[in-house]
Design a protein around this nucleic acid. Sequence first.
DNA 1: GTGGTCTAGACCACC
DNA 2: GTGGTCTAGACCACG
Lengths: 132, 132, 132, 132
Amino acid sequence: MQDVKIPIQINENSAEPLYHQIENQLRSLIITGQLGEGTHLPSIREFAGSLNCSVITVRRVYQDLENEGLLRTKQGTGTFVAQVEAGDRENYRLKAAREAMLTAVQSAKAVGCTEEEMESLFWEALKAVYSK
Amino acid sequence: MQDVKIPIQINENSAEPLYHQIENQLRSLIITGQLGEGTHLPSIREFAGSLNCSVITVRRVYQDLENEGLLRTKQGTGTFVAQVEAGDRENYRLKAAREAMLTAVQSAKAVGCTEEEMESLFWEALKAVYSK
Amino acid sequence: MQDVKIPIQINENSAEPLYHQIENQLRSLIITGQLGEGTHLPSIREFAGSLNCSVITVRRVYQDLENEGLLRTKQGTGTFVAQVEAGDRENYRLKAAREAMLTAVQSAKAVGCTEEEMESLFWEALKAVYSK
Amino acid sequence: MQDVKIPIQINENSAEPLYHQIENQLRSLIITGQLGEGTHLPSIREFAGSLNCSVITVRRVYQDLENEGLLRTKQGTGTFVAQVEAGDRENYRLKAAREAMLTAVQSAKAVGCTEEEMESLFWEALKAVYSK
DNA sequence: GTGGTCTAGACCACC
DNA sequence: GTGGTCTAGACCACG
């Protein structure tokens, strides 16, 4: 078991609900292995303080991720990263990425993009993201 | 001016709000030219009836698209497709598609995909969408 | 779609959390088919009023059951019983009952009951429950 | 008086509180006679060490069981298994088992099981537990 | 100290 | 009217 700082970026202006932002980022950290099994997450009060949000919101995040099987929480002890099988981890990653890509292509098709245009936009996006 | 049936598909189970689904599809129809300039859209009441939704929802759709400059409402006469310049049409399309693609790539990167994986997923998505 | 009264019994003195009691009873009503697909559940405010509990608690119940796939909720419209496949319904029932029975037998074994004693206790319990 | 090793199995992942798990197992050991009257239990500190848990937890266990009359604490000497009358022992066993069975049957009825189904599930559970 | 539950009440988005 | 999110703050159970 380890004890670490969790790097979460909150976008105040986003339409995405606060708890969603936190959940998504935390989920990514777990399934990419940046938070290893057994990692002791900050207590809900502490995390709420550092994220500058309500305890309830953090509580909700932890609970949702526990329902997904990514966290394990023990009353009076704390919240920990659960054991995630390598296969599951891979599935999570690919499922999320595949859905994102599919959605993008569907949207592009809906506005009448040709396959060539999409390909060009894809490379453009790739360059934009990885040059940052 | 012409008077046509508007082909809108509503997905009851989607998390996407009703007005959003309708707006997006209607916007696509207009900027891809499937609804030409001057097309007379159904009355709010009529459209609401055929979509089996509330008039409030349709009113909101018409209003939002009018604000975007895609529709034009004439008191007592009805709602019509506005003039869309070729350049604007192109901008709309690419802007929407570009954003979609960027979002997808960012999501994929967030879950740890490599560029190679993304490319593979992109082709997969393209195939899936166009083989339908 | 139908609109009905939901018969929920709250036990104030139980150690079982309020939201758990409501969830369990509602789940039973759904998987036993007493609340058919499409049934329009009371609004969270209304239900909270009749259960004499907080809106938040009802909200949580609805959300948890939605995550389980038993409810479907549409913003601005309401909360409905989702489509549950007959097979799933059967699985739910048997899974719940099987676990309950297994737990009981394990507990009984832990305190040193013989198989004969258990059988006798089982018949006793059956009689007690069904004679009510 | 004797001094023995206490075989307690802790399940880290169970939702059941630690103190509960320990209490239940210790209670079973006592009422089934596996820990005879006068047995000298380990000191709180020692027990906590071997269970790898907090002394607070063990203290609570000892205290609860003392309240139930199953343990007896002598200042400066230690904690011992109290005298359990044969009748009491029998009562404990049957009470616990009876409650467990009743709960199970009620749960099963709540999800719509017929008496026949329950019987079948009961035999299944019995087989599962005793074949281990 | 930790998490678990519940409250009242606010404000927003949707229909 | 509906549900969706977030808040502050209380009290309890666990270690």
